[in-house]
Amino acid sequence: MEMETEKDRDQILEYYNSGKEIDRLLRGIGVIEWERSREIISRYLSEEKMVIYDIGGGTGVYSRWLAELDHEVHMFELSPSNVQYARELQASGQISPIHRIEIADARSIARVDDSADLILLMGPLYHLPEKDERIAVLQEALRVLKPGGTVIIAAISRFSSTLWGLSVFGQQNNLIDDHVFMEMLEGELNEGQHIRPDKFPNFISRAFFHLPAELKSEIVAAGLTHIQTVAVEGPVWIVPAFAEKWEDTKSRETLLKISSLVENQESLLGMSPHMLAIATKNTNT
């Protein structure tokens, strides 16, 4: 496995500091990721106020949503630009306040042991090519999670770029006929290592794409108890004319229902661009 290099870190920060995450969940297939992720996370929220750590919180979309539900949310994010954006939006007074917004590496969270009821890791595992570093993130989450608490862990599917290139989203670019794109896919499919070619600067920066079984094994290796892994978008994102169907209320409800119905089908997990794994901290830990 390849170590995270200074070049990788610079590319990752450049990608997120450029503001690409600000509206990502409001356009394209990001809209179904947003709807489904909130639906899944909501299953683990209580009516009482929870202490929630949103680690790798991006621009704060999940933190703001959870703060609106009156939870005590602590947002941790590596990108200074994302943190600044979240702070400026909060300073405008137009949203419910996030309790704390801090710059932090997911491998080192400045909180005491056993202090969070719920932890979101909605991105940190994407950008660590080395397995030991991903496990370190999970172990840090284990440390600050209360016994019996829940951690929700996002991962990108090993097959996400491949399916995107084969779908209608890659149609105008003829990506599968591009040798540079195919070389990128080979690295992803063979080893899970996504290395963004210079030719495609808008693609996600240096990343690791998981197989479902790999994600589970890393969670267990970190000392967490794996409960389940579910598909976020499922296979429905690949439907022709996705944008038009999403704008139609009835079609949108159908797409979301299908995603929900097949979310636990192991044979379809890899077709979903994103997966969410649910894990807990043993009360004897």
Rank of each mutant, 00 (worst) to 15 (best):
V144T: 12
F169L: 05
I98E: 03
L189I: 14
H179A: 07
R158G: 14
I278H: 03
E2A: 04
E263Q: 09
M122R: 10
S108H: 02
D178G: 04
A67D: 00
T225A: 03
T285H: 08
L276D: 07
K7G: 13
N17E: 06
D114A: 09
E140K: 11
E130R: 05
E133S: 06
E68I: 15
G28T: 14
R24D: 15
H226M: 11
N202Q: 05
S92N: 08
V83S: 06
E191K: 12
L163E: 03
G58Y: 09
A106C: 12
D178A: 12
L121P: 07
A116T: 10
I195F: 12
F76C: 09
T285Y: 10
R158N: 09
T249P: 06
E183S: 10
L121M: 12
L128D: 02
G192D: 06
T229N: 00
F209E: 02
R206F: 03
R64P: 01
E4V: 12
N202P: 10
M271E: 13
E214F: 14
L45Q: 14
D178I: 03
W34K: 13
S260K: 07
L189M: 14
G56Y: 04
E253M: 11
L145V: 00
N282Y: 15
N190V: 15
L138M: 08
G187Q: 01
S108D: 05
T59H: 10
G149I: 08
G28D: 06
S63A: 14
T59F: 10
I22A: 13
V112G: 08
S267P: 00
L13R: 10
R206T: 07
R43I: 00
D117L: 04
F181R: 02
L215P: 00
A110G: 02
T285P: 11
E33D: 13
L185R: 04
I152S: 01
T162F: 15
G149S: 08
E2H: 10
P97K: 15
V144Y: 10
T59Y: 08
A106W: 00
Q228M: 12
E183M: 14
S92I: 02
L121T: 06
A86E: 05
S259K: 04
A91F: 14
F209R: 03
L89E: 05
L125D: 07
Q193K: 09
T225V: 03
L166N: 00
F159H: 03
I258P: 00
A222F: 03
K199W: 05
T150M: 11
I119K: 01
L89G: 06
L120A: 15
D114N: 15
D132R: 13
G58I: 01
L26Y: 01
S260I: 01
L121R: 07
Q90G: 02
P273T: 02
E39C: 14
E72Q: 09
A116D: 12
P235F: 09
A136S: 11
V239R: 06
D198W: 10
G187A: 04
D178H: 06
T283H: 08
E4H: 03
K245G: 07
H179F: 11
L211T: 03
